[in-house]
Design a protein around this nucleic acid. Structure first.
Lengths: 116, 116
DNA sequence: ATGTTAAGTCGTATATTTACGACATAGTTA
DNA sequence: TAACTATGTCGTAAATATACGACTTAACAT
Protein backbone atom coordinates (compact mmCIF):
# COMPACT_ATOMS: atom_id res chain seq x y z
CA UNK A 1 0.00 0.00 0.00
CA UNK A 2 2.94 2.25 0.76
CA UNK A 3 0.19 4.24 2.33
CA UNK A 4 -3.60 4.23 2.37
CA UNK A 5 -5.40 6.70 0.13
CA UNK A 6 -8.88 6.38 1.56
CA UNK A 7 -8.79 10.05 2.53
CA UNK A 8 -9.09 11.03 -1.13
CA UNK A 9 -12.69 9.76 -1.33
CA UNK A 10 -15.96 11.27 -0.13
CA UNK A 11 -17.18 10.78 3.43
CA UNK A 12 -20.10 8.72 2.13
CA UNK A 13 -17.85 6.40 0.18
CA UNK A 14 -15.54 5.98 3.15
CA UNK A 15 -18.41 5.32 5.53
CA UNK A 16 -20.00 2.69 3.30
CA UNK A 17 -16.63 1.04 2.75
CA UNK A 18 -15.94 1.01 6.50
CA UNK A 19 -19.18 -0.79 7.27
CA UNK A 20 -18.76 -3.14 4.31
CA UNK A 21 -15.34 -4.00 5.67
CA UNK A 22 -16.88 -4.90 9.00
CA UNK A 23 -19.12 -7.38 7.18
CA UNK A 24 -16.31 -8.64 4.99
CA UNK A 25 -15.54 -11.69 7.08
CA UNK A 26 -17.98 -14.57 7.57
CA UNK A 27 -17.15 -14.72 11.28
CA UNK A 28 -18.41 -11.17 11.76
CA UNK A 29 -21.52 -11.86 9.69
CA UNK A 30 -22.09 -14.93 11.87
CA UNK A 31 -21.65 -12.92 15.07
CA UNK A 32 -24.27 -10.39 14.02
CA UNK A 33 -26.67 -13.14 12.98
CA UNK A 34 -26.09 -14.89 16.29
CA UNK A 35 -26.75 -11.75 18.32
CA UNK A 36 -29.91 -11.13 16.29
CA UNK A 37 -31.20 -14.68 16.66
CA UNK A 38 -30.64 -15.18 20.37
CA UNK A 39 -33.19 -13.51 22.51
CA UNK A 40 -30.66 -12.78 25.24
CA UNK A 41 -27.37 -11.00 24.74
CA UNK A 42 -24.70 -13.61 24.51
CA UNK A 43 -21.29 -13.15 26.06
CA UNK A 44 -18.33 -15.39 25.45
CA UNK A 45 -20.65 -18.18 24.36
CA UNK A 46 -20.08 -16.59 20.98
CA UNK A 47 -16.60 -18.08 20.95
CA UNK A 48 -18.05 -21.50 21.64
CA UNK A 49 -20.44 -21.19 18.69
CA UNK A 50 -17.77 -20.25 16.17
CA UNK A 51 -15.05 -22.48 14.71
CA UNK A 52 -12.33 -20.07 15.80
CA UNK A 53 -10.23 -19.59 18.88
CA UNK A 54 -11.47 -17.35 21.65
CA UNK A 55 -8.73 -14.82 20.90
CA UNK A 56 -9.68 -14.56 17.24
CA UNK A 57 -13.37 -14.19 18.04
CA UNK A 58 -12.48 -11.48 20.52
CA UNK A 59 -10.61 -9.67 17.78
CA UNK A 60 -13.66 -9.81 15.48
CA UNK A 61 -15.85 -8.55 18.31
CA UNK A 62 -13.49 -5.62 18.81
CA UNK A 63 -13.76 -4.69 15.15
CA UNK A 64 -17.53 -4.65 15.30
CA UNK A 65 -17.39 -2.69 18.54
CA UNK A 66 -14.97 -0.16 17.04
CA UNK A 67 -17.70 0.76 14.55
CA UNK A 68 -20.30 0.74 17.34
CA UNK A 69 -22.31 -1.92 15.50
CA UNK A 70 -22.32 -3.95 18.70
CA UNK A 71 -21.91 -2.99 22.33
CA UNK A 72 -20.59 -4.86 25.32
CA UNK A 73 -21.89 -4.47 28.86
CA UNK A 74 -19.85 -5.91 31.69
CA UNK A 75 -22.01 -7.94 34.08
CA UNK A 76 -19.81 -9.26 36.82
CA UNK A 77 -17.59 -11.94 35.40
CA UNK A 78 -19.29 -12.16 32.03
CA UNK A 79 -19.79 -9.62 29.26
CA UNK A 80 -23.01 -9.17 27.37
CA UNK A 81 -22.71 -8.15 23.74
CA UNK A 82 -25.71 -6.74 21.91
CA UNK A 83 -26.52 -5.22 18.55
CA UNK A 84 -26.81 -1.48 18.21
CA UNK A 85 -30.16 -1.60 16.45
CA UNK A 86 -30.38 2.14 15.82
CA UNK A 87 -27.05 2.24 14.02
CA UNK A 88 -27.88 -0.92 12.08
CA UNK A 89 -31.03 0.77 10.82
CA UNK A 90 -29.02 3.75 9.63
CA UNK A 91 -26.49 1.50 7.96
CA UNK A 92 -29.28 -0.44 6.31
CA UNK A 93 -30.57 2.77 4.80
CA UNK A 94 -27.13 3.68 3.50
CA UNK A 95 -26.84 0.32 1.77
CA UNK A 96 -30.36 0.58 0.41
CA UNK A 97 -29.62 4.01 -1.04
CA UNK A 98 -26.37 2.78 -2.55
CA UNK A 99 -27.91 -0.28 -4.17
CA UNK A 100 -30.93 1.68 -5.39
CA UNK A 101 -28.68 4.14 -7.15
CA UNK A 102 -26.69 1.27 -8.62
CA UNK A 103 -29.64 -0.79 -9.83
CA UNK A 104 -32.00 1.91 -11.10
CA UNK A 105 -31.42 4.05 -14.15
CA UNK A 106 -28.26 3.77 -16.18
CA UNK A 107 -28.32 0.18 -17.34
CA UNK A 108 -26.00 0.11 -20.31
CA UNK A 109 -28.02 -0.29 -23.48
CA UNK A 110 -27.30 -0.59 -27.20
CA UNK A 111 -27.71 3.16 -27.67
CA UNK A 112 -24.72 3.78 -25.42
CA UNK A 113 -22.32 2.77 -28.16
CA UNK A 114 -20.87 -0.18 -26.32
CA UNK A 115 -21.29 -3.90 -26.62
CA UNK A 116 -22.95 -4.80 -23.29
CA UNK B 1 -3.59 -16.02 9.11
CA UNK B 2 -1.70 -19.28 9.13
CA UNK B 3 -4.61 -20.28 6.98
CA UNK B 4 -8.05 -18.97 6.20
CA UNK B 5 -11.00 -20.56 7.94
CA UNK B 6 -13.78 -19.12 5.86
CA UNK B 7 -14.76 -22.65 4.78
CA UNK B 8 -16.10 -23.32 8.27
CA UNK B 9 -19.02 -20.92 7.78
CA UNK B 10 -22.29 -21.26 5.90
CA UNK B 11 -22.52 -20.53 2.19
CA UNK B 12 -24.77 -17.56 2.94
CA UNK B 13 -22.32 -16.08 5.38
CA UNK B 14 -19.45 -16.55 2.97
CA UNK B 15 -21.39 -15.05 0.08
CA UNK B 16 -22.44 -11.96 2.03
CA UNK B 17 -18.88 -11.52 3.30
CA UNK B 18 -17.48 -11.86 -0.22
CA UNK B 19 -19.71 -9.11 -1.58
CA UNK B 20 -19.13 -6.93 1.47
CA UNK B 21 -15.41 -7.31 0.88
CA UNK B 22 -15.88 -6.06 -2.68
CA UNK B 23 -17.48 -2.91 -1.25
CA UNK B 24 -14.91 -2.60 1.51
CA UNK B 25 -12.75 -0.06 -0.29
CA UNK B 26 -13.93 3.48 -1.15
CA UNK B 27 -12.38 3.20 -4.61
CA UNK B 28 -14.63 0.26 -5.45
CA UNK B 29 -17.67 2.04 -4.04
CA UNK B 30 -16.72 5.03 -6.17
CA UNK B 31 -16.35 2.89 -9.28
CA UNK B 32 -19.82 1.43 -8.88
CA UNK B 33 -21.31 4.87 -8.24
CA UNK B 34 -19.51 6.21 -11.30
CA UNK B 35 -20.79 3.40 -13.54
CA UNK B 36 -24.30 3.96 -12.21
CA UNK B 37 -24.20 7.71 -12.70
CA UNK B 38 -22.77 7.86 -16.19
CA UNK B 39 -25.22 7.05 -18.89
CA UNK B 40 -22.55 5.47 -21.04
CA UNK B 41 -20.25 2.66 -19.98
CA UNK B 42 -16.97 4.25 -19.09
CA UNK B 43 -13.67 2.61 -19.92
CA UNK B 44 -10.32 3.77 -18.63
CA UNK B 45 -11.76 7.21 -17.97
CA UNK B 46 -12.47 5.63 -14.62
CA UNK B 47 -8.77 5.87 -13.81
CA UNK B 48 -8.81 9.54 -14.65
CA UNK B 49 -11.72 10.14 -12.27
CA UNK B 50 -10.09 8.44 -9.29
CA UNK B 51 -7.14 9.67 -7.24
CA UNK B 52 -5.22 6.45 -7.84
CA UNK B 53 -2.84 5.19 -10.45
CA UNK B 54 -4.17 3.41 -13.49
CA UNK B 55 -2.66 0.14 -12.33
CA UNK B 56 -4.35 0.33 -8.95
CA UNK B 57 -7.72 1.21 -10.47
CA UNK B 58 -7.32 -1.72 -12.84
CA UNK B 59 -6.76 -3.99 -9.84
CA UNK B 60 -9.96 -2.73 -8.20
CA UNK B 61 -11.84 -3.29 -11.47
CA UNK B 62 -10.55 -6.85 -11.57
CA UNK B 63 -11.84 -7.52 -8.07
CA UNK B 64 -15.30 -6.29 -8.98
CA UNK B 65 -15.19 -8.30 -12.20
CA UNK B 66 -14.10 -11.44 -10.35
CA UNK B 67 -17.42 -11.30 -8.48
CA UNK B 68 -19.23 -10.49 -11.73
CA UNK B 69 -20.56 -7.26 -10.25
CA UNK B 70 -19.24 -5.45 -13.31
CA UNK B 71 -18.47 -6.61 -16.81
CA UNK B 72 -16.00 -5.39 -19.40
CA UNK B 73 -16.59 -5.45 -23.14
CA UNK B 74 -13.65 -4.85 -25.43
CA UNK B 75 -14.45 -2.31 -28.13
CA UNK B 76 -11.41 -1.89 -30.32
CA UNK B 77 -8.77 -0.08 -28.35
CA UNK B 78 -10.94 0.79 -25.39
CA UNK B 79 -12.85 -1.32 -22.89
CA UNK B 80 -16.35 -0.60 -21.75
CA UNK B 81 -17.16 -1.53 -18.18
CA UNK B 82 -20.77 -1.79 -17.05
CA UNK B 83 -22.70 -2.82 -13.97
CA UNK B 84 -24.29 -6.27 -13.81
CA UNK B 85 -27.68 -4.96 -12.77
CA UNK B 86 -29.28 -8.39 -12.32
CA UNK B 87 -26.60 -9.54 -9.89
CA UNK B 88 -26.70 -6.23 -8.05
CA UNK B 89 -30.42 -6.70 -7.50
CA UNK B 90 -29.83 -10.15 -6.04
CA UNK B 91 -27.07 -8.81 -3.81
CA UNK B 92 -29.30 -5.99 -2.70
CA UNK B 93 -31.88 -8.53 -1.58
CA UNK B 94 -29.28 -10.50 0.35
CA UNK B 95 -28.22 -7.39 2.22
CA UNK B 96 -31.81 -6.37 2.83
CA UNK B 97 -32.59 -9.80 4.28
CA UNK B 98 -29.48 -9.69 6.45
CA UNK B 99 -30.21 -6.23 7.83
CA UNK B 100 -33.88 -7.01 8.35
CA UNK B 101 -33.01 -10.02 10.45
CA UNK B 102 -30.50 -7.94 12.38
CA UNK B 103 -32.77 -4.97 13.05
CA UNK B 104 -36.08 -6.65 13.73
CA UNK B 105 -36.92 -8.69 16.76
CA UNK B 106 -34.29 -9.45 19.35
CA UNK B 107 -33.37 -6.01 20.59
CA UNK B 108 -31.82 -6.64 23.99
CA UNK B 109 -34.19 -5.47 26.69
CA UNK B 110 -34.19 -5.29 30.50
CA UNK B 111 -35.93 -8.66 30.73
CA UNK B 112 -32.92 -10.34 29.13
CA UNK B 113 -30.94 -10.10 32.32
CA UNK B 114 -28.23 -7.87 30.92
CA UNK B 115 -27.45 -4.21 31.22
CA UNK B 116 -27.96 -2.96 27.66
C1' DA C 1 -6.12 -16.00 51.00
C1' DT C 2 -6.32 -19.06 47.21
C1' DG C 3 -8.08 -21.08 43.27
C1' DT C 4 -11.14 -20.78 39.43
C1' DT C 5 -13.03 -18.75 35.48
C1' DA C 6 -14.31 -15.28 31.99
C1' DA C 7 -12.53 -11.56 29.62
C1' DG C 8 -8.94 -8.98 27.75
C1' DT C 9 -3.85 -8.05 26.15
C1' DC C 10 0.54 -9.09 23.72
C1' DG C 11 3.53 -10.99 20.55
C1' DT C 12 4.06 -13.22 16.48
C1' DA C 13 3.51 -15.88 12.09
C1' DT C 14 1.39 -15.95 7.83
C1' DA C 15 -1.91 -14.32 4.25
C1' DT C 16 -3.98 -10.79 1.82
C1' DT C 17 -4.69 -6.04 0.25
C1' DT C 18 -3.25 -1.82 -1.52
C1' DA C 19 -0.43 0.85 -4.36
C1' DC C 20 2.52 1.78 -8.13
C1' DG C 21 6.40 1.75 -11.64
C1' DA C 22 8.13 -0.74 -15.46
C1' DC C 23 7.20 -3.65 -19.10
C1' DA C 24 4.28 -6.24 -22.68
C1' DT C 25 0.47 -6.46 -25.91
C1' DA C 26 -2.91 -5.29 -29.18
C1' DG C 27 -5.65 -2.21 -31.86
C1' DT C 28 -5.36 2.37 -34.51
C1' DT C 29 -3.54 5.68 -37.20
C1' DA C 30 -0.09 8.10 -39.98
C1' DT D 1 5.67 -0.45 -41.54
C1' DA D 2 6.18 2.51 -37.60
C1' DA D 3 4.63 5.38 -33.98
C1' DC D 4 0.98 5.86 -30.78
C1' DT D 5 -2.30 4.77 -27.31
C1' DA D 6 -5.39 2.10 -24.29
C1' DT D 7 -5.22 -2.15 -21.78
C1' DG D 8 -3.39 -5.46 -19.37
C1' DT D 9 0.62 -8.07 -16.76
C1' DC D 10 4.56 -8.51 -13.46
C1' DG D 11 7.24 -7.68 -9.66
C1' DT D 12 7.62 -5.58 -5.46
C1' DA D 13 7.07 -2.82 -1.14
C1' DA D 14 4.46 -1.66 2.61
C1' DA D 15 0.09 -1.91 5.24
C1' DT D 16 -3.48 -4.52 7.14
C1' DA D 17 -6.09 -8.70 8.33
C1' DT D 18 -6.41 -13.26 10.22
C1' DA D 19 -5.34 -16.62 13.54
C1' DC D 20 -3.73 -18.32 17.79
C1' DG D 21 -0.85 -19.46 22.06
C1' DA D 22 0.76 -17.52 26.22
C1' DC D 23 0.15 -14.28 29.66
C1' DT D 24 -2.56 -10.80 32.61
C1' DT D 25 -6.44 -9.07 35.02
C1' DA D 26 -10.65 -8.95 37.57
C1' DA D 27 -14.73 -10.94 39.70
C1' DC D 28 -16.45 -14.69 42.17
C1' DA D 29 -16.37 -18.80 45.16
C1' DT D 30 -14.41 -21.65 48.59
Amino acid sequence: MTYAKTAAFTADQQQLARVAKALAHPARVAIIQLLAREHTCISGDISAELPLSRTTVFQHLQELKALDLIRGEIDGLTVCYCLNTELLLQVQQQFTAFFSAATTGAACGPDDGCAC
